[in-house]
Simulated scan of single mutants.
Amino acid sequence: MKQLLALLGLLCFSMQAQSPELALTITNIQSVKGTIEIGVFNTHDNYLKEGAAYKNYSIVVTDNSETIIIKDLPKGEYAISMYHDKNSDDKCNKNFLGIPKEAFGFSNNIVPKFSAPSYEDCKFVLNDNEKMDIKLTAF
């Protein structure tokens, strides 16, 4: 029994070691208050659908640039979206046209012009440790 537990422990450790680290730096934070809400999507089917992110992360804003180290994403293809929830109401506030009133950002630093970017525009492959910068944009 002890051998089985040791083997399972070793297997779990080895699986964790295979997950790469993503160092995500968010820049152009205009206000040092609230949180940055991050959604990580792993398919185009659920991309940008509310409540459908593969993983969610939240960072309390303490500076004009914030970094989060994500260690729990297995190797694969992803797209990231985020917004600065300045008023901490847990939603991306939008105007009557549906345009975000709070700053937002996407992987690959895609800046949308007339509609939200596609999964294809924002996707990236995470196979090894990676650093990524995302600049927040506000309209």
Rank of each mutant, 00 (worst) to 15 (best):
M1F: 13
M1H: 11
K2Y: 14
K2V: 08
L4F: 14
G9W: 02
S14E: 11
S14K: 07
P20F: 07
P20R: 09
P20G: 07
P20Y: 10
L22G: 03
L24Y: 13
L24W: 05
I26H: 04
I26R: 06
I26P: 02
T27F: 05
Q30C: 04
S31A: 12
G34N: 00
T35Y: 14
E37P: 00
I38A: 03
G39R: 06
G39C: 05
G39K: 02
V40W: 06
V40K: 04
F41N: 05
N42W: 01
T43R: 04
T43D: 11
H44G: 12
H44I: 08
D45M: 11
D45K: 10
Y47W: 14
L48Y: 07
K49M: 14
K49S: 11
E50N: 10
G51I: 06
G51D: 10
Y54R: 12
Y54W: 11
K55Q: 15
K55E: 15
K55P: 05
Y57V: 02
Y57D: 14
Y57H: 15
S58T: 15
S58V: 14
I59V: 13
V60A: 12
V61C: 02
V61Q: 07
T62E: 13
T62G: 08
N64E: 07
N64L: 00
N64Y: 10
T67K: 14
T67H: 09
I69K: 13
I70E: 03
D72Q: 12
P74N: 09
Y78R: 04
A79E: 03
A79N: 00
A79L: 00
I80L: 06
I80P: 01
I80D: 04
S81H: 02
S81N: 14
M82S: 05
Y83K: 01
H84M: 05
D85A: 01
D85M: 09
N87V: 05
N87A: 00
S88W: 03
D89M: 11
D89E: 09
D89T: 10
D90N: 15
D90V: 07
K91M: 15
K91W: 11
C92E: 12
N93C: 03
N93P: 04
F96N: 13
F96T: 08
G98W: 04
G98C: 03
I99M: 08
I99H: 11
K101A: 09
K101M: 13
E102S: 08
A103T: 06
A103W: 03
F104V: 15
G105Y: 08
S107I: 00
S107G: 03
N109K: 01
V111C: 00
V111L: 15
P112W: 01
F114I: 11
A116N: 15
A116H: 07
P117Q: 05
Y119L: 02
E120Y: 02
C122M: 00
C122E: 01
K123Q: 12
F124K: 06
V125F: 09
L126T: 04
L126K: 01
N127L: 11
N127G: 14
D128H: 14
D128P: 06
D128V: 07
N129C: 01
N129S: 12
E130A: 08
E130K: 15
E130I: 05
M132F: 10
D133P: 01
I134R: 02
K135F: 05
L136I: 06
L136Q: 08
L136S: 08
F139E: 15
F139L: 14
